[in-house]
Amino acid sequence: MNKKAVVVLSAALFLIGGVLTGCGNSSSSKRNSHTAALVTDGGGIDDKSFNQSAWTGLKAWGKSHDLTKGVNGFNYAESSSNSDFTPNINKLIKANYKTIFGIGYNLDNAISDAAKDNSKVNFAIIDSVVKNRKNVASVTFKTEQSSFLAGVAAAETTKTNKVGFVGGVKSSLIKTFQAGFQQGVKAVNPKIKVDVKYAGSFTKADVGQSLATAMYNNGEDVIYHAAGGTGAGVFTAAKNASKSGNKVWVIGVDQDQKADGKYSGGNVTLASSVKEVGTAVEDLSNDAMKNKFPGGKTLSYDLKDDGVSLVNDNMSKSAWKIVQSYQKKIENGSIKVSAE
């Protein structure tokens, strides 16, 4: 390429640019009373986990107020890497969304910075606490409580007295799942061994599958996963083991994962430790609509207010009864679950 070529290339680029800008969108002037959007953490709105349940909540909110997806209603922006957070948030601000959710603790810096520059927009951060911003609501979940119940369910179901835990990235958040699970197992039977493994990622189903396969081969018959998309591999491993005659279980996470456990011979989902990110998103959007957005506050969801829960998918009746009795004990405070 020589200089001429460069000139031609740049001219061509600008020409294409000029032509296309001409037909850029013009957002319609008719605006609804309130609009909301969310920015995902790595992984899309179909991750069968965290991001998806947030998006489901936002969709439900939109539906209940007759809003459609788009600039006049509700929307999402997917981040394929951490460097997308800030541009995504800013694009949503520019598109005039009134309430913007950051789904996941990774976004806390980006949300905090954006909130500083845009004091009229409501921001919410899930799973983290952003301090000193009056327009940011922080939402946390007492997932150690639902994980405790998952531990009880696992301990009541295991026949080998060996159960497993597969975490995504070893962070303080995922450790609350691990800690709750271990306490739950111990409460039922201190002799049961809990094998803890981390995949190092929330998006690697292949790693999840190889970890889980090894664990099932090692005689662990219930695995609780807190690993987002990596957990899909745990389900695959469980289905493969069950198909070949070794009936094993998975405890799902974040949303009811019963559908993920289906296979030709039955279902491997024992229970799901649900975290109602969707409910939180819906609640906050409603609050914002009524001009009651809890900016600057930290909202903590727990078992009592159904922010977290254990959903029975395929548990035996007796096991479920015991889980429920533990749930009451946690709710009335006679059992305290530690987050560490």
Binding site: N25, S27, A37, K69, G70, V71, N75, Y76, A77, E78, D84, P87, N88, K91, L92, A95
Partner: peptide, 9 residues
């Protein structure tokens, strides 16, 4: 590309 889903379905 990030704008695509913001302004359309």
């Amino acid at each position: 590309g990030l704008s695509i889903s913001v302004y359309s379905t």
